[in-house]
Simulated scan of single mutants.
Amino acid sequence: MQPCLTLESFSDLLGHLYQGPMENIPWVTFLNQLNLQLHSKYVTFILRPPSAHVDGLMVNTTGSSSETTASYNKHFFALDPFVDLPNREVVTLASYVSNDELLQSEFYKNFLEPVDVFHILGADINTCDGAQCRIRISRGRNDQPFGDEEKTLLARFIPHLERSIKLHMQLNRIETERNLYAGAVDQMAVGTIILDETGKVLQTNQVAERLIQEKDGIKLVNDGLQVGTARDTQEFRRLVKQSLLSQKSSNPSVVEAMRVQRPSGRADLGIIVRSVPLSTWSEGKQCPTVVIFISDPEQQSSAPQEIVRALFDFTPAETQLAMLLANGLTLDEASEELGISRNTSRAHLRSTFSKTGVTRQTMLVRLILRSVATLG
């Protein structure tokens, strides 16, 4: 059966293709629709071809099992004759391997035949950013071979698929960088809360989420924030409103600070309210408009001891003492925590002074808290 692609069908498929990078499984809707349009058994998109060192990353249409993907990655990719195709050119397996050669091959007998695949249509896309992608469309041995109509239809989508791949790569880089920076802020024990143009919460990091859940000085009410006392909340809302006005008027970023009392009597929270500059082409609602930074003086340093030890060449005992001091304990309290005498603690402290070049305990604490150890 020859494919019949109306303008409406083409537009629908194209929409799914460009929506692909935002799906949980990229391009799965487009691939399933293409599978139906071409009356094929499977459509497979290989975003990362497998090698001897890494597994491939594949997106399969309904019907292709994870076991099939795993077996291809581990063994059969090395036997696959349908690879390294001319860039962006749609070709068939029959143009590479004769039917008789294919039927006698181990690749067919052990991989294709068990899933009833014989006819394959495909194209490779090698982008300027280094992506090496493959799309493969399969039919069974008793099905109609792929002809010029199917090749022409797939060729129409190849330039769009390449653009969509580039969008996917860019979004993936942005997401990776965002997660990296968010993780660094979490490690530094700084809470971050992002508000939209109405002052409602868009996003929180782990530290801020913990503080909100505790409801001790800051809490979430109807998607908005309440802090400290009624007077604190009034001042906080004034600062947020000022930041919102600053952002809407395209003024330089406004930064305001305040302290917030906690009902539990624990140390006050420190809060920074800052407007978020919009990019030139920002538009629409629910854009990041104001960011709230929160510091909790009672949050202990989460710097891994092995990293502190490696950075400053401390002994295990010196590292334990330094970490307790960095988390606010006095020398006597740290000695009791470690079960050692004050004289032993003082000897460890002198040794850390010698190794770091500092002369006071406060300087040692500041050195550790400002080091990259907190990012470990």
Rank of each mutant, 00 (worst) to 15 (best):
Q206H: 13
A230G: 05
L245S: 13
L211P: 03
Q234I: 06
V221R: 15
N205W: 03
L239S: 07
K219I: 07
I193A: 02
D216P: 09
G199L: 12
V207D: 01
S246V: 15
Q203W: 13
L239H: 06
A208L: 03
D232H: 14
S249K: 15
K219E: 13
L244C: 04
S250T: 02
L202W: 06
V207R: 14
Q247R: 15
E197L: 12
R210G: 01
K200M: 01
N222F: 08
T229C: 04
R237Q: 14
T192H: 11
E209Q: 10
Q206D: 10
G191H: 05
N205M: 05
E209F: 09
L239I: 04
T233M: 12
I218M: 13
D216C: 06
L220G: 07
V207S: 02
Q206V: 05
E209C: 01
S250M: 07
K215A: 10
A208D: 10
L195R: 11
S243Y: 07
I212W: 08
G228L: 14
R238H: 02
D196V: 05
I218Q: 14
E209A: 03
L225V: 00
D232V: 05
L202Y: 01
R238A: 02
R210F: 02
P252C: 06
V190M: 03
G224N: 12
T204H: 03
T198L: 04
V240G: 00
N251D: 10
A208M: 12
F236H: 07
L244P: 03
I193F: 10
K215Q: 15
E235L: 11
G224I: 01
E235Q: 10
I212S: 08
G224E: 09
Q213V: 02
E214G: 03
L211W: 09
T192Q: 13
D232S: 14
V201F: 05
G217S: 06
Q203A: 08
T204A: 00
S250R: 11
N205D: 05
N205Y: 05
L195K: 08
L225I: 05
I194H: 12
K248F: 07
Q206N: 07
G228Q: 13
S243I: 02
T233C: 11
